[in-house]
Nucleic acid binder design. Structure first.
Length: 324
DNA sequence: CGCTTTTGACCTGCGC
DNA sequence: GCGCAGGTCAAAAGCG
């Protein structure tokens, strides 16, 4: 129930927003806002990590988003209302054109902290508790074992089982996309398991689970109540498998991304997919990513060591401007 | 027939 | 303790 690419909006209106940030970092076309040559581009895209308030301000302008400060940025329901932006958090922004000269743009907000455990370098989300997922985890554990006779009873039992344990939150990655369709195709197969009305919003929130066995990745999709044209997608967890090869788009795209899929780092992958699913990506040289290699600030590199490289894997379109 | 979606019920954590 | 909001379950319906 997706993949119609209705999420496109015409790039001309998008570029009218006059966003210095993108032009500043655009892979091929350096220069001022007007320096980004949208019209002739068959493909194109770029992504960046942001950390400063100024960056958020620019983003909010560029995407007509409702936040202009870090705090507001993390006020988006996607990451939880209590969450405040930490210095380790990062925002990814990207915009790409597809064959139809349409533009897809998005802003990703990634919440990460360094794992305090010295034995692990994994990434996890900081912030508020996610009770719902907590219960879910319990359920999952149970699945291995016994039968149901009384569902209610079972739940209570399992509840006790993990009582007192501090749940380990899966890393979450949320991003906003200008889109007319709610559930954006990302290459994975999802099963919807719930939908809830969101307070103070006319739009419901949908809950999806990856259909692959043993993969516990979840996804929430909702529309911004402030700007209904924006879809907020939140991924939680990491895929334990490769992407099913049935995404719309070319096979070379999938092949190119496969290395990224193998890595336990799905945030950029997902965002990259959002940008590349429209067919804007294809294999290209691995050169020309200079600015990407320096994306992560030292602190970011600490938490997400593979990020820059991953994006390079995923976002070949960054160098499209140098293509014929 | 198997898989997905829908949807009301249920559970949990939090704030008051 | 109570009510609320978010998250999940699971039966039923829908669909290919």
């Amino acid at each position: 129930m997706s993949g119609d690419n209705k999420e496109l909006f015409h790039y001309e209106s998008f570029f009218d927003h006059n966003y210095p940030f993108f032009s500043q970092h655009s892979g091929g076309g350096s220069g001022d806002p007007q320096g980004f040559e949208a019209p002739p581009l068959p493909y194109g895209g770029f992504t960046e990590y942001l950390q400063s308030s100024a960056d958020y301000g620019m983003l909010s302008k560029a995407f007509d988003l409702s936040f202009s400060t870090k705090e507001e940025a993390f006020g988006v329901p996607a990451l939880g209302k209590e969450k405040k932006l930490e210095s380790e958090d990062a925002v990814i922004a990207g915009v790409s054109t597809n064959e139809n000269s349409s533009v897809m743009a998005g802003v990703g907000i990634m919440s990460v902290t360094a794992n305090s455990s010295p034995s692990s370098s994994s990434v996890e989300v900081a912030g508020e508790e996610d009770y719902g997922a907590c219960e879910k985890d319990r359920k999952m554990d149970e699945e291995a074992g016994e039968e149901e006779n009384d569902g209610q009873k079972n739940k209570n039992i399992s509840k006790q089982k993990k009582k007192g344990e501090k749940r380990q939150r899966e890393p979450r990655f949320a991003f906003m996309t200008k889109s007319e369709v709610d559930h954006l195709e990302d290459g994975y197969r999802w099963r919807k398991y719930g939908q809830k009305a969101v307070k103070n919003s006319n739009y419901p929130r949908s809950y999806y689970r990856c259909t692959t066995q043993k993969c516990t990745v979840k996804k929430r999709v909702e529309r911004s109540h402030q700007d209904p044209s924006i879809v907020i997608t939140t991924y939680e967890g990491q895929h334990t498998h490769h992407c099913p090869a049935n995404v719309r788009g070319s096979s070379h795209l999938l092949a190119n991304q496969s290395s990224a899929m193998a890595m336990p780092n799905f945030r950029a992958e997902l965002f990259g997919r959002q940008l590349t699913q429209l067919g804007l990506a294809n294999p290209s040289t691995s050169s020309g990513y200079g600015f990407l290699q320096n994306l992560a600030t030292p602190s970011q590199q600490l938490q997400i060591p593979n990020y820059g490289a991953l994006l390079q894997d995923i976002m070949p379109s960054f160098v499209k401007s140098s293509q014929p």
